[in-house]
Amino acid sequence: MEAGCGRASAAGTVLCVATQLIPDSVVAVTMTPHVTTIATRDDKNRPSMCLVGFVRIEDDREHVTCFVTERPGGDTRTMLTASRRVALSMGNPATNENYQLKGTVTDLRAMTDAERAHQDALHSQLADLFAMMFPPELVAMARRSSYRPAVAATIRVDSIFVQTPGPGAGASITAAEGAGATAPRAAEGDPR
């Protein structure tokens, strides 16, 4: 929320909801066990991809923190910092509600204990969901494992799109646009 929003005044509480970039529908998906991947690219515009063990929307509704898996076959930190431009595809596998968030990586760091606990809670819920979709052996494997090792990446989001299959797919839903605020910004340092 913008500075000053929510404060009390003689006329009542100042509401600044329209300035929030990330809409409630996207926040809601991150509160459920969601499946996420992150795409980035190198200096020759060749794309690459990593799995993400959940996304957390920050209070300013402009930044997200996502926990990007570190796996063999590619250095996650190098991939995320090569251009810093990323696209997160994020959805609820039970409902097929899906969104794409585009933005710029602003920080990489180790996960905190609180973030690991948050990740474990969502992972447990995801395994429960898998129990309705996949064979018991696979569900058991999911319960005995985790998305870690992973790195916490902070991303400044500048545009959001619907990816739920159907006629609305591809539509921009950046909340500030709908409120008549500024259009999505080109991120700092982004050559597009």
């Binding site: 991947t37 992150i38 795409a39 980035t40 690219r41 515009n45 060749r46 794309p47 690459s48 991809m49 251009s83 431009r85 990323v86 696209a87 997160l88 595809s89 959805g91 899906n98 794409q100 585009k102 990816q163 982004d190 050559p191 597009r192």
Partner: peptide, 16 residues
């Protein structure tokens, strides 16, 4: 499966 592509201007895209 998940697919990553990139525009000629360097904007990555991810989709199922």
């Amino acid at each position: 499966a998940v697919l990553a592509t990139c525009s000629k201007d360097g904007e990555p895209n991810a989709t199922i």
